[in-house]
Computed example of a mutant assay.
Amino acid sequence: MEYWIVYDLATGAELYPGSGMPGTAAYQQPPEGAGIVVVPQAVVAQQPRDLGALKAALILGVDNDAERARAAIITALPGQVGTYVLKEAAARAWLADNGASTAMLQPEATARGMTIAALAAEVIANAEAWAQLSGAIEGMRYAAKARIAAAATIGAIVEAAVIDWSVLNAPAA
């Protein structure tokens, strides 16, 4: 079963709940000035509504959205993330001491027809760019979580969970 609540966009107050087979909420036509949010069953199981369960579900959604934002920028597989960390450490070590091991860098440099120096510089530049983007994602994620926690109505909770991830693709000012 899928559960939803139709709410007033202006006040955030509940208008009425609904339920149906999974995917049914997408076909509902809320009245003018109303929104609809799919909620866990625990939210509609009692009166007053369990807004804590709604907040928890939307916070999980924010975390999942943040992971999708990361995955749009990097190859977000556990082994690949570990490889990025190892490459950055190897690049920084080699730039600090050209006698450091190149075991992590040499195969890629050879495959790409690059010098170790060029690859190390690229790896460090990518790591620094990723640190900026990753920090922005974390800031957006935690700001949304704080807004959700502070929200008091269904509508305000739903609105608090909305994040414009497209700003990550905007050119730097």
Rank of each mutant, 00 (worst) to 15 (best):
N64E: 07
V158N: 03
M21I: 15
A121W: 03
A121P: 00
M140K: 04
V37P: 00
A111N: 13
A125C: 00
G35V: 05
T153E: 05
A25F: 05
V85K: 04
I157K: 00
N64S: 07
L15S: 02
A117Y: 05
A69T: 03
V37I: 12
I124C: 06
W130C: 06
I154K: 11
L95C: 01
E138H: 06
G79Y: 10
G99S: 14
G52K: 00
I73T: 04
G18C: 05
L58Y: 03
Q106G: 04
L51Y: 09
G79W: 01
V43H: 00
N126A: 11
P22E: 14
T24Y: 15
E67R: 15
D65P: 08
L86D: 06
A45E: 07
P30Q: 08
V158P: 05
P30H: 09
R147P: 13
A66C: 03
Q80M: 13
W94I: 03
G82D: 13
V62H: 01
L77I: 10
N126D: 15
D50A: 01
E67G: 11
G33M: 08
W94F: 15
A66M: 05
Q106D: 00
A120R: 09
L54D: 01
E108A: 14
T115F: 04
A91W: 14
A26S: 15
D65S: 15
G99I: 04
A151G: 06
Q28I: 12
I154V: 15
